[in-house]
Amino acid sequence: MVKNSLIFIVLIGFAVLLADLFVGFNGNTDLNTLANHYAVSGPEEVGSANLVTAVVVTYRGLDTLGEVTILFLAAAIVSFLLKVEAGASLNRKLRSTSEILDTASRILVPVIFLFGIYVFINGHLSPGGGFQGGAIIASGLVLMLLAQPAKEVGHKLITLVESISGISFVLIGVAGVLFAAGFLDNKLLSLGKFGTIFSAGVIPIIYIFVGLKVGAELSGIITNLHENQNEA
């Protein structure tokens, strides 16, 4: 009884805290100063048509580096806890997959990978970017592992892609300190013509590395969970 009333009090407290948000709130009619600066001078300063990309990669680039690091830590701890010994692979009985599923997955998986790559290459022009592209690549890997459960994904490849793209991300940032205005500054390359694929300076290159890194990390989590199923 005491416990239930305590939970009730906590819920009421949170409701009062959050009620402050919407009691006087009547919708925005204008941007605040910071957002107005990003929206007005963003296209000239950064050259990216997608303003969310401009904020994620250039204006708040250091935060993105920190967030990718948090994701890396989570994936590393998951793979540390779910470690499978080398000899203990695949001692469960697998039911043979049907031929229809096998053929369809062989056609679909490369197309899904290609779509993920398209999404993170075009991150500065259309909706999308490194995080979405990485998630789509990991979804394609899930389809592949569910359709062909006996298939083994190389851990070496995932680790290699992950570390190379992480190092390149930091090196591009340091090159921005040396040759341009500051850390992760995108004027390292010329801004190009607004709205074409070779524009926005170094943003597409950074987003390709972010996409590869996020895709490799999520694929690592999925692969570890999948291989852990095989153990008794």
Binding site: G128, F131, A135, S139, V142, Q229
Partner: peptide
Amino acid sequence: DVAMTEAAIGSGLSTIIFFY
């Protein structure tokens, strides 16, 4: 952008991890 991320991650990968 947020809609794409949520559709791919929230309803795809997250559900799969729970089921594993």
